[in-house]
Design a protein around this nucleic acid. Structure first.
Lengths: 214, 214
DNA sequence: CGATGTAATTCATTTACAAGG
DNA sequence: TCCTTGTAAATGAATTACATC
């Protein structure tokens, strides 16, 4: 703890939660944001409405929007080149973690393969198909850390390389490569379909792979 | 119970990382743990091996194991009634969050509807319920779940449709699944690399897949 | 030796403000 | 006036470590 003294600016301390920033207010703001993702800049009308409903000041609400834009949204481009803001998972966190590279949460893969091991973090065995082994609910921290971990260990040239054990049989290699090629096409098709709903984000795709042990 | 305020004990400060607790050591310990989930109590042999490979003291290693057991593992029971420890996501975090009920990360759903599930702000109403270990929660990432599910369905359906012969032989299916895993690896790696340039957009990823532009 | 309680440190997230355009 | 970018400060989660039983 290195803070010399609590600095008070106006009536609010930096970093300190005020009573008006409770879960209900956050829910309202989130609601506004999700309704205005195409143009997440608050208008007078919504501003006044949220002020009245939450008790937050104008400055607080606009500051919240500013922070959300830079920390939770990112720019993508549609095929026509138009610019858009969509949700993104924690860009700042990723940058910081790359620089320090330490003190990452310990994530267990929970893989005891040899069977369709249903051991997710749940304690009871529900034989529902929706859960896949290795895919479990997680916090955003762990997802990103897994990505970073595997990124460091993974070979940089990742486009068309076969894994060594497949090299034993050239016919098997050919079959595997054909399957991979086909899957790539299918994935492309899949992403294009998702795209039409205009809510697709590549980072969500990344997260959908986690924490699948590969 | 006892809070004897000792700031420094020996040469190590509480909570402070020492140089031997680096990522390589953590990896080794994690490796040991995942190999010994059935009985996560370290033996002399492994203890000495890890001591030598990491430079950590015996006390540090055993302390790590103790902390892992209580913070990252939870007890489940097999159908035969036997007791088992399996990975659990952040039991302590969940407890604290349920009690305070504030300051949760802001997660955007990226979708307008999906109003059936109300679990995104559960801590507001359910202040403290009888917290059973292993109870699954954290269904906040709704959009991720949706995409995850859709993605999981996609390759199977498409594979079966476009190449029926893969269905006939379980070995072929296994190969296909391996190929999908590999594809996921490649994608994750690729996207993580692109991430650092911060100019990524989905169309670059799609176009990077030869052979055919969509 | 293990389980449990807890002190201390580090890091990610959030609220807030300032500078400059 | 509003936005973007940089950053200060508070909070909480995760981790390492030790004491007690």
């Amino acid at each position: 703890m290195r803070q010399d003294a609590k600095k008070k600016i106006g009536t609010i301390e930096k970093g300190k939660r005020c009573d008006f920033f409770n879960q209900k207010s956050i829910e309202l703001l989130k609601e506004w944001l999700e309704d205005n993702l195409d143009h997440p800049y608050i208008e007078r009308r919504d501003l006044i409405r949220i002020q009245e409903e939450t008790g937050l000041t104008k400055k607080q609400i606009m500051g919240w929007c500013t922070n959300i834009r830079r920390r939770r949204l990112t720019v993508v481009r549609d095929p026509d080149g138009s610019r858009k803001l969509i949700p993104l998972e924690n860009p700042e966190k990723k940058r910081k973690k790359n620089e320090s590279g330490e003190r990452k949460p310990i994530v267990l893969a929970n893989k005891k393969e040899e069977s369709s091991d249903e051991a997710s973090t749940n304690s009871q065995q529900h034989s529902v198909s929706a859960q896949e082994p290795g895919v479990k609910e997680n916090s955003e921290n762990t997802s990103e850390n897994i990505i970073q971990n595997e990124f460091k260990e993974m070979p940089k040239d990742c486009s068309e390389e076969s894994s060594p054990k497949l090299k034993q049989d050239s016919d098997e290699i050919r079959k595997s490569e054909e399957a991979l090629k086909k899957l790539k096409e299918e994935l492309k098709s899949f992403m294009t379909i998702r795209l039409s709903s205009s809510t697709f984000c590549w980072c969500e795709l990344i997260n959908s792979f986690d924490p699948c042990p590969v």
